[in-house]
């Protein structure tokens, strides 16, 4: 199942990102190398250590810790996410991936730690400010706005709308022209995501896979630099999976960075340039997809999750022959 056969419009992409000034894709035409190629080159020869330094990180998180009651959900010492590439965040259930997502994007606040996006500290920044900076996420359980049409969902994504201010809202002449531009951009994206026929349907009437597509397209309306996808393949039928994969890859070609959480290992292998593995709230391994899949720590982490093994032991004792029953944490 080569992902290359996916119906990705390889070109059409640039026009979209060109209209969003914050996107680095605009710069890519001038340089000899695209951001994606540069990013991939930067990853070459990096040590496959947890917390390894990247050459050009877009996100850097240090000592991010979040506890719920007595349970430590996330305890990340140091992690960096390379610009211009697709990074996968994997790990067994309950590893803290979604919580980490929430912390990075301002949907939850950690107990301690610091993290930056493009060098800007995001500590204490609320979710909407994080999104405006260019770090836009989707959700594990898709959040489409059911009683709004598909097109309205898309329009909502555009930032800096004059008509979204209260007083201007009542005066259409102030925002009509901008609204037309936004609508044109939304239609173009919908066309790319094959949702154009649905534009006046309520988003609630879409199928699960179509919702995933809509959510991703809507995130692009914000003009992100880093797209964060929380399980983009969950509940998507196989036919749509290929097209979704293609879309994710095309984001990279347009110069955006992608971080995604996924359980589908085929997808991770196919499209990611780098894989970060979390277990029990910690980053336990990092590396290119081929090597990470055979990494003993990763295999143990996945098995450990099923065998109730203490992960901290696995980190040190790679060839754990006896498995100690761990305490009930939940």
């Amino acid at each position: 199942m080569p992902a290359d056969t996916s119906p990705t419009p390889a070109t059409g992409a640039t026009s979209m990102s060109a209209s969003t000034p914050s996107s680095p894709a605009t710069g890519s035409t001038g340089t000899t190398r695209s951001v994606a190629d540069q990013g991939r080159a930067d990853l070459q020869g990096l040590a496959t250590e947890p917390g390894v330094k990247k050459k050009d990180p877009i996100v850097v998180a240090t000592d991010v810790r979040r506890t719920f009651g007595g349970l430590t959900a996330v305890d990340v010492e140091h992690v960096e996410i390379q610009r211009g590439v697709i990074t996968a965040l994997i790990g067994p259930n309950g590893a803290g991936k979604t919580t980490f997502f929430n912390l990075l994007t301002g949907f939850d606040q950690p107990d301690s730690g610091s993290w930056t996006f493009n060098g800007t500290s995001l500590k204490g920044k609320s979710a909407y400010k994080v999104a405006r900076l260019g770090m836009v996420r989707t959700f594990q359980l898709t959040k489409v706005l059911s009683k709004l049409t598909v097109l309205e969902n898309m329009r909502m994504g555009a930032t800096g709308q004059r008509g979204e201010r209260f007083w201007a809202g009542a005066l259409p002449f102030l925002w009509k022209s901008q609204e037309q531009e936004i609508t044109a951009r939304a239609r173009e994206l919908l066309g790319r995501f094959k949702l154009d026929a649905k534009e006046s349907d309520f988003a609630g009437s879409l199928s699960g896979g179509q919702r995933k597509l809509l959510e991703m397209a809507r995130a692009l309306m914000v003009g992100p630099e880093l797209v964060m996808l929380d399980e983009p393949m969950a509940g998507v039928n196989p036919a749509l999976k290929q097209s979704l994969l293609g879309h994710v890859k095309s984001l990279r070609e347009e110069g955006m960075s992608v971080l995604f959480v996924e359980h589908d290992m085929d997808m991770v292998r196919d499209i990611s340039d780098w894989v970060i593995v979390m277990a029990q709230g910690k980053v336990i391994a990092e590396g290119p997809p081929r090597s990470i899949m055979t990494d003993q720590r990763v295999i143990d982490a996945y098995l450990g999750a099923h065998h109730d093994t203490d992960i901290s032991e696995l980190e040190h004792v790679v060839t754990a022959e006896h498995q100690q029953p761990k305490e009930e944490t939940a």
Binding site: K143, M156, G157, A170
Partner: peptide, 22 residues
């Protein structure tokens, strides 16, 4: 107006609207 659209969006799912920078 877009203002009202944001309100209706909040009614449907405020986290989604937040994730779009509102």
């Amino acid at each position: 107006s877009p203002w009202g659209r944001v309100l209706r969006g909040i009614r449907e799912d405020e986290d989604a609207v937040r994730s779009l920078g509102k």
